[in-house]
Measured scan of single mutants.
Amino acid sequence: TKKDTKLYCICKTPYDESKFYIGCDRCQNWYHGRCVGILQSEAELIDEYVCPQCQST
């Protein structure tokens, strides 16, 4: 049987260590910077990140 692979981001793909991720400070989920429109250089300046799903609630 195929091992359950945890899926990340709004694009629902397995973790890829070569890509940049940003963690939501509300739901603790991880998102590709590219998918949520945040560059790694911008993320370093953000104190708290809230993902699109949490922003809409």
Results as ranks from 00 to 15, higher is better:
residue 30 W to G: 10
residue 6 K to V: 08
residue 48 E to M: 08
residue 16 D to P: 03
residue 4 D to M: 10
residue 25 D to C: 09
residue 7 L to H: 14
residue 15 Y to C: 03
residue 14 P to D: 03
residue 5 T to W: 06
residue 19 K to Q: 10
residue 5 T to Y: 13
residue 35 C to W: 00
residue 11 C to S: 00
residue 6 K to F: 06
residue 31 Y to N: 03
residue 36 V to H: 02
residue 54 C to L: 02
residue 23 G to D: 10
residue 48 E to N: 15
residue 57 T to P: 12
residue 9 C to P: 02
residue 47 D to Q: 15
residue 20 F to Y: 11
residue 54 C to V: 00
residue 25 D to W: 08
residue 30 W to P: 08
residue 28 Q to D: 11
residue 6 K to C: 08
residue 29 N to V: 11
residue 44 E to I: 07
residue 32 H to A: 01
residue 21 Y to N: 09
residue 15 Y to H: 10
residue 23 G to W: 08
residue 16 D to E: 12
residue 20 F to D: 11
residue 46 I to N: 10
residue 49 Y to R: 04
residue 42 E to I: 05
residue 24 C to E: 02
residue 16 D to Y: 02
residue 34 R to E: 13
residue 39 L to E: 15
residue 52 P to S: 15
residue 53 Q to S: 10
residue 53 Q to I: 15
residue 12 K to R: 11
residue 15 Y to G: 03
residue 31 Y to P: 02
residue 28 Q to R: 11
residue 8 Y to A: 15
residue 50 V to P: 03
residue 48 E to H: 11
residue 32 H to C: 02
residue 1 T to C: 14
residue 45 L to G: 12
residue 42 E to Q: 13
residue 21 Y to L: 06
residue 32 H to S: 02
residue 6 K to L: 11
residue 20 F to V: 04
residue 45 L to F: 10
residue 30 W to M: 14
residue 8 Y to D: 15
residue 52 P to K: 15
residue 55 Q to Y: 04
residue 9 C to N: 00
residue 40 Q to H: 13
residue 35 C to Q: 01
residue 39 L to V: 05
residue 23 G to C: 13
residue 36 V to C: 03
residue 53 Q to E: 13
residue 13 T to M: 08
residue 38 I to G: 04
residue 5 T to I: 13
residue 28 Q to T: 11
residue 44 E to M: 10
residue 34 R to I: 08
residue 56 S to I: 07
residue 28 Q to M: 10
residue 13 T to W: 03
residue 49 Y to H: 03
residue 22 I to Y: 03
residue 5 T to D: 14
residue 51 C to S: 03
residue 26 R to W: 06
residue 1 T to R: 06
residue 44 E to V: 09
residue 11 C to W: 00
residue 25 D to V: 12
residue 51 C to K: 02
residue 27 C to Q: 00
residue 40 Q to C: 09
residue 37 G to A: 06
residue 1 T to N: 14
residue 53 Q to Y: 06
residue 26 R to Y: 10
residue 47 D to V: 09
residue 18 S to F: 03
residue 30 W to Y: 15
residue 3 K to E: 14
residue 55 Q to H: 08
residue 9 C to I: 00
residue 36 V to Y: 00
residue 30 W to V: 15
residue 3 K to T: 14
residue 6 K to S: 12
residue 27 C to M: 01
residue 52 P to E: 14
residue 49 Y to F: 11
residue 57 T to R: 10
residue 38 I to D: 04
residue 42 E to T: 05
residue 56 S to W: 03
residue 55 Q to D: 15
residue 12 K to H: 11
residue 14 P to N: 07
residue 30 W to H: 13
residue 47 D to W: 05
residue 30 W to F: 15
residue 55 Q to V: 08
residue 40 Q to F: 07
residue 31 Y to R: 02
residue 56 S to Q: 12
residue 48 E to Y: 09
residue 11 C to Q: 00
residue 55 Q to K: 14
residue 13 T to S: 09
residue 18 S to M: 05
residue 10 I to C: 06
residue 48 E to W: 05
residue 46 I to C: 04
residue 43 A to G: 12
residue 17 E to Y: 05
residue 20 F to M: 09
residue 48 E to T: 13
residue 26 R to K: 08
residue 38 I to R: 06
residue 28 Q to C: 15
residue 47 D to F: 07
residue 28 Q to F: 07
residue 10 I to A: 03
residue 43 A to T: 09
residue 45 L to C: 10
residue 8 Y to S: 13
residue 17 E to D: 13
residue 17 E to T: 07
residue 21 Y to V: 07
